[in-house]
């Protein structure tokens, strides 16, 4: 009696397969070339689906597959400010078939502020850095403050009275507010949210007076805010009217740099192969246009330059954190 039910189960399972399997048809394809790579590459995003790292990776995928001749599978492993994915990567196989997004400052900060983040920054080998999201400081459109100087003067004479929204503790936004406080002597109240979107919500609802936000959020919501400063070296292409922190006398840049990384002991030729592929992707004109329209700044740092950059950031960030007593 029961055994006769089996075909029915099979029917349902086949129905499931029929619903889900067509999707593979879209993803099929890809040939082989040379020695590496010969099979699909996993591209791990250490943050949530739908975030900026994810969107960038989804854009890269098409060109990347063309360049490498194999499938590129994007998957997400969010958690612990990226540390979950990076510690898994550092303990995984160093064969180049699993690569992960490398976000600075997160990848540098996590091992600094925690006893055991599961990895050390040195356990990972930077491969290529392709973009920066500058961080800017903004106040509401109806705010009494019109310049960074006014806001900082107010914060100096009223320590802790000015609330600044940002995307979390030990994040790029947190680091930016620490640097601004350190350089200006003003004291703000930093209100961390559980991500960029809730931080923007807190600010737009008028629950905080200012916000530190990534350039793409600034571009998106620019009608409802006054952007007082941006953390680039020179003027930012998407918001040319906004002065930099440096121009206004605060000698620091703030941004989130994105690239990819592999385990430290990955063979040299594989690292170079991936480096070439990402270089080609990043120089793809269509990709550049899309990224710039969204408010990102392009970067073209190869493996060696990127490694140097990470080491420099590591020194800078640990100095700032130590001097501010965060360590």
């Amino acid at each position: 009696m029961r055994v006769q039910r089996m075909p029915r189960v099979a029917v349902v399972i086949i129905a499931v397969a029929v619903m889900v399997l067509p999707t593979t048809l879209f993803a099929a394809g890809g040939g082989e070339q040379g020695s590496f790579p010969t099979r699909a590459i996993n591209y791990v995003i250490p943050f949530d689906a739908g975030g900026q790292s994810d969107i960038t990776a989804q854009y890269q995928r098409e060109v990347l597959e063309r360049e490498l001749g194999v499938d590129v599978v994007i998957r997400h492993q969010p958690g612990a400010g990226g540390a979950l994915a990076w510690s898994a990567l550092s303990r995984g196989r160093a064969d180049g078939y699993t690569i992960a997004g490398n976000n600075i400052p997160h990848i540098v900060i996590q091992p600094l502020v925690r006893e055991n983040a599961g990895y050390r920054t040195e356990d990972l080998r930077p491969v290529y850095m392709f973009q920066t999201t500058p961080i800017g400081l903004a106040v509401a459109a109806n705010s009494p403050f019109n310049t960074l100087a006014e806001l900082i003067d107010h914060a100096r004479s009223n320590p802790g009275r000015v609330t600044v929204s940002g995307s979390g503790t030990h994040s790029g936004h947190h680091l930016a507010i620490l640097q601004l406080q350190y350089l200006s002597g003003a004291e703000f109240t930093y209100v961390p949210a559980s991500g960029a979107a809730p931080s923007v919500t807190n600010f737009l609802g008028g629950h905080t007076q200012a916000i530190l936000a990534n350039s793409d959020d600034l571009v998106q919501h620019r009608e409802s805010m006054k952007i007082l400063a941006i953390g680039t070296d020179g003027r930012f292409h998407a918001l040319p009217e906004v002065p930099t922190f440096m121009e206004q006398g605060y000698d620091f840049t703030a941004g989130i740099d994105r690239g990819v990384t592999v385990p430290a002991n990955t063979p040299e030729d594989i690292v170079r192969r991936l480096e070439r592929a990402f270089d080609a992707v990043t120089r793809d004109p269509a990709f550049v246009t899309q990224m710039e329209a969204m408010g990102f700044e392009m970067q073209y740092l190869g493996a060696d330059a990127f490694a140097e950059y990470v080491a420099r950031k590591q020194r800078e960030i640990s100095t700032v954190l130590r001097e501010l007593g965060e360590l």
Binding site: I13, V16, V20, L21, T24, R75
Partner: peptide
Amino acid sequence: ILVTMFVLVFRIALRVP
């Protein structure tokens, strides 16, 4: 058979590692 089908769907179609 059930286990194999699910594993295949997850591995291949949904790309779950």
